[in-house]
């Protein structure tokens, strides 16, 4: 697999380590009254879509940036990749 790194261009997937669903970026607010339930969902529950999936990849053998990669889990087609920092700053 090849991942289009926003800064470094096409990179082989072997350079990356995979974490999983990009929803891990949406850490719940610890000050909310239902924080424990929200954290339980956040830690343990993931969607497992057959199709388009936004997921986190770490460029460990590279520039050590975290990327949000949009991948079709059925075809393995990669639809895009963004720096996770940019995604997080946007609040998406």
């Amino acid at each position: 697999m090849l991942i289009p790194h926003p800064l470094l261009g096409l990179r082989d997937a072997q350079e990356f380590t995979y974490l999983g669903d990009a929803s891990l970026m949406a850490r719940p607010d610890p000050d909310q009254p239902d924080a424990e339930a929200a954290f339980a969902d956040y830690v343990f529950l993931r969607d497992n879509p057959a199709g388009v999936h936004r997921e986190l990849w770490f460029h460990e053998q590279g520039d050590r940036s975290w990327l949000v990669v949009t991948r079709n889990t059925v075809t393995h087609e990669i639809l895009g990749a963004e720096l996770a920092t940019d995604v997080a700053r946007r609040g998406a």
Binding site: L19, M25, T85
Partner: peptide
């Protein structure tokens, strides 16, 4: 390696501010 990776995750993905 894992702690470093996790700290980068926290820095880039959780608290980029």
């Amino acid at each position: 390696g894992l702690v470093y990776q996790r700290m980068e995750f926290a820095r880039q993905c959780l608290w980029p501010e």
